[in-house]
Amino acid sequence: MSDLSFLSALLVGLGGGVHCVGMCGGVSLALSAATPAGSSPLPYTLSYNFGRIFSYIVAGAVTGGIGQIAKDAVPVTGPVLAVFSGIMLIAMACYLGNWWRGLTAVEALGSKLWQRIQPLSKRFLPFRSPISAFPYGMIWGWLPCGLVYSTLTWALASGTAISGAVIMAGFGLGTLPALLAVRAGADWLSSGFRQPVVRQIIALSLLFYALLLLWRALSTIQ
């Protein structure tokens, strides 16, 4: 199931590409102003994005570890977390399919934390080397995002720190193409993520997987 979780998380990241462009696209474009003149922007862009994905992986490992501790202490916690994760994944599928947008309200939960850590990113500007773009991306990985939070509940219910990290790695890698396309000015690729058919297919695939997880969790409780 871990491979399926990684692939499903990858699809979530791909399907959420439009949302990622809206949330982080401006940051990606702003990297051009922080990149030394005459330097190739690609190493800086990759470093920033891998820093962002690294934060996702760390968060996934932490939440997965917390879920493991909770399940070891109280066995019934596992199925309960799985049910909660399934519900959040259904909400995510509804968001990606544009059937229901309530998930955006979840983003307000991390706003206070973001206000505290966002100013730290200014310490790394302008970039002196691609390496300095990595911690900058790590900070921006904590930008409040309903899709990230929903995927983290999935990591929480995964059962182990490794599984949680794998899920968030899949999600982060899935967001990469859209943001790289914006940075490179590849409008044809960016527009591909906006195609209703593409989003509907990904949303339906995620909905099927979420219902499968929910059914498995409810069967365990019974």
Score class of each variant (00 low, 15 high):
L4W: 08
S5M: 06
L11Q: 11
V12C: 05
G13E: 06
G13D: 07
G15S: 01
G16V: 09
G16Q: 00
G17N: 05
C24N: 06
S28G: 15
A37E: 13
A37Y: 14
G38P: 07
G38I: 03
P41F: 11
Y44R: 03
T45F: 15
T45V: 14
S47Y: 06
G51K: 05
G51Q: 04
F54T: 01
S55I: 07
I57W: 02
A59R: 05
G60S: 01
V62T: 03
G65L: 06
G65A: 00
I66P: 12
I66Y: 11
I66W: 13
I69F: 15
I69D: 13
A70S: 03
K71S: 15
A73N: 11
V80M: 04
L81H: 03
L81F: 07
F84G: 13
M88G: 03
A91V: 15
M92A: 10
A93T: 09
L96Y: 04
W99M: 08
W99E: 11
V106Q: 11
S111M: 15
S111P: 04
S111N: 13
K112A: 15
K112D: 12
L113M: 10
Q115Y: 06
I117P: 03
Q118S: 15
L120K: 14
R128G: 15
P130E: 07
S132Q: 14
A133E: 01
F134E: 05
P135Y: 05
G137D: 04
I139G: 02
G141K: 09
P144Q: 08
Y149S: 09
S150N: 03
T151P: 02
W154G: 11
S158V: 08
S158E: 02
S158N: 06
G159C: 10
G159V: 07
T160E: 01
I162Y: 05
S163L: 01
S163A: 05
A165L: 00
A165D: 14
M168T: 03
G172I: 00
L173Y: 08
L173A: 09
G174Q: 07
T175S: 02
L176K: 07
P177I: 06
P177K: 02
A181V: 12
V182E: 06
G185W: 05
A186Y: 02
D187M: 12
W188V: 15
L189E: 08
S191H: 13
R194E: 13
R194L: 05
Q195F: 05
V198S: 14
V198G: 11
Q200P: 07
I201G: 10
I201W: 01
I202L: 04
S205Q: 09
S205C: 06
L207E: 01
Y209P: 03
A210F: 09
L214S: 02
L214G: 08
W215H: 13
R216D: 07
Q222F: 14
